[in-house]
Write a protein that binds this DNA or RNA. Structure first.
Lengths: 122, 122
DNA sequence: ATCGTAGTACGACTATTGTCAAACTATGAG
DNA sequence: CTCATAGTTTGACAATAGTCGTACTACGAT
């Protein structure tokens, strides 16, 4: 189980939109969903490069795939394969370049909400 | 036509959500539409307290009403009647209090986009 | 009182979205 | 090779959202 032995990065390549082509409405729309917002929050909260399965989302596998795809196609996350796992990371720098301050304010607001209602799952 | 003579502010009162109850997802969802984004932008661009009709939106009257309602119920704008006209203003302070930096970054991003594509109506 | 203007309400229609289950693919482990 | 794991794809479904036209209400002007 040596770390590098499990890395494959094979065929399965994933399309990501270029930073310059990210659209504001698409990004806002992608963030306007509780499940996706919780994913983004988890990634920002030090859980960078988590496998999809590790999020324990309250939805089925296929729905989860769907949400990750929406986030990826909006340009919010970047995904790559490591073995069978698909890891995701926030495109913080790209987002900051294209929409300065946006991600930070969204994360800040969402964290505030979570302090108010720590039990609320959504 | 003395200014104050046309002000009525009569029956027709409008419901606005309290600042403390504004929900992030709702706000993001409301902003994730080209028509509504253009309304918000126009209001921010010094056209505060415009009547709905003055926006010249590329949609029908009833659709326009719909979009203004979405913005109002999300807590992004405040509306009040002046005669038959319904004027709208951005709730900048409320939004800043609840979601610091959010509106500013969205407006900034949208303005940037408009400089890139000045002809693009959406 | 009548008319025009500004906006709302309602119903209909279409497109999009969030959801799931089932079948499938790719990879690593044994 | 075979099996389990992680994720994708497809098709279906219900709910939501954006759109419109028509009918309606409220107000100001004449």
């Amino acid at each position: 189980m040596s770390e590098s032995a499990t890395v494959t990065v094979s065929g399965r390549r994933v399309k990501h939109p270029e930073t310059a082509r990210l659209r504001l409405e698409t990004v806002l729309g992608a963030l306007a969903d509780p499940v996706r917002l919780s994913i983004v929050c988890a990634l920002a909260d030090g859980h960078e490069d988590m496998a999809c399965v590790a999020f324990e989302l309250p939805v089925s596998k296929s729905t989860s795939t769907h949400h990750f795809r929406v986030l990826r196609e909006a340009g919010i996350i970047r995904q790559y394969y490591v073995g069978t796992a698909r890891k995701s990371g926030l495109r913080v720098d790209d987002l900051e370049e294209r929409f300065p301050g946006l991600l930070a304010s969204v994360l800040n607001a969402e964290r505030g909400r979570r302090e108010e209602h720590p039990d609320d799952p959504a």
